[in-house]
Every structure is written in C-alpha cells, then in structure tokens.
Amino acid sequence: MFEARLLQGGLLKKVLDSIKDIITEGNFDCSPNGLSLQAMDSSHVSLIDILLESEGFEHYRCDRNIPMGLNITNLVKMIKCAGSEDIVTIKCEDKPDNVTFLFESKDNDKISDFEMKTMTIDDEHLLVPDQTYTAVVKMPSAEFQRLCRDMAAIGDTVNISVTKEGVRFSTTGDMGTANITVRPNPSGDQKEEERTEVQITEPVSAGFALRYLNSFTKATPLSPTVTLGMVPNLPIVVEYKIADMGHVRYYLAPKIED
C-alpha cells in the first residue's frame, strides 16, 4: 500500500497549479523514493518532470511501485477542497481503483476525506539523459515570470541567448520587437534568491514558444528562483526547486527556422 502525509498541504495545490495548463492526465508514480510524475503535453513539445521525495513527507510508506493514474482536472477540483494550511494524507492500495485524500485542519477540528477514481494511462516514459548544460542561468522566478509575460505581449517566440555577459531574451511580432537583457549580479548586496547567476562553457542561443514558457511560470509560487539549462540544439530545461522536497522541471523542444 501507499500512504503519504504532507504537513504543508498547500504545496500540493501549488504543484497542481504548475501542471494543470499543460497536461490533463498523468501517472503519479509512487515508489519508496517518493512521488514522481513524468508527462508530456498532448503535442509532445514539452515534458513535465516532478519529484516529491519521501523525506519531505512527515510520514511516508510505499511497499512497492504503484502507478496512480489520475485525471488532473478532477484532482485539482478535489485538492481545492483542502484548506491551504491543511495537512494532506494520500492513500491507496497496491493496485488502486481509488485514491483517498484526507484533509486535516491545522487545529485538528475538521477532518475531510475524498475518494477519487483512478484511471489506466498508457505509460510513455521518455529517457531524459543526464547531461551537462552548456549554459546554466539562475534567476529570481518572479523576474522570469514577468519577462515571459512581457515578451508574450509582443511575440510568440523568444530567442534566448546566453553569454558570460548575461542572458538576452528577444522577440518579434506584428507591432515590433523587444529585447531584454538580464545581467549577472553576484557581487551585489542582494540575497541569494535575488541574484542572477550565469555559468557557461560556450555561448548558446535558441528559440522557444512563449506559450509554453508562460505555462511553466505557473510554478513560480513553488520557488523564489528558477534555473534554465541549455545545450546547443537540445531542449531547454526550466527547473523550480521545491525546498526540502524535490523539484518541478519542464523540458521544452526548440523552434527552428524552417
């Protein structure tokens, strides 16, 4: 059986907010290491990779690997019924037809349980190779969110160029062009999460659909910083680390000149 108790139930809401615009269903894989999910959007352009490590739960028991296939829209509806301060317990049997969500208020004066039907989902796991990124940019997640939103007001595609001087975001649309350059500022007085850091072995430049990047920024409440990893001619990775718990990572295939 699988049983996991999470003290910060609000975290689940944030995780679901970060995926609900991209996928409609997914297999949550319960394993002794933690709860994970890998799913592509319907057009196979982007991939979501979530890990919530077992150590991040107050109580975690998983005897064997269990794929928990869930409709994300319905899951969002159910988790919305939890208070943001509630403690959430997720429970299911080894071959589940249902998953139980137990919500306990912080003061223990209200307990609710919801049972949700599971579904069988064909697993299409992609092997994402562990790779060394040619360029890694760490920046405040709110800054990245703002930037993607501003760029999307002008164009559909953003070209991201990373050099040791900084990261240049450029877009072109019917009304004109926009360029935003974010410079690394590691020596300033900013707190670590307010800094932009760039590590590169060689300059990288590629174009990406803003529609997807904007969806990824729904993960902003999960982390004060976001990390972009790029390798020439390969998908970009956009990672939001969840403190003491794991990550929400997105991979996005580039656009090329036809």
Binding site: V45, L126, P235, A253, I256
Partner: peptide, 14 residues
C-alpha cells in the same frame, strides 16, 4: 517561418 520541434525527436521512449 519557424517550425516547432517535438521532444520525441530528442529523447527516446523507455
């Protein structure tokens, strides 16, 4: 004209 590539042309299915 720009073309959107798909992820399965980069990563293989397990």
């Amino acid at each position: 004209q720009e073309m959107q590539l798909r992820l399965d042309s980069f990563f293989s299915f397990s």
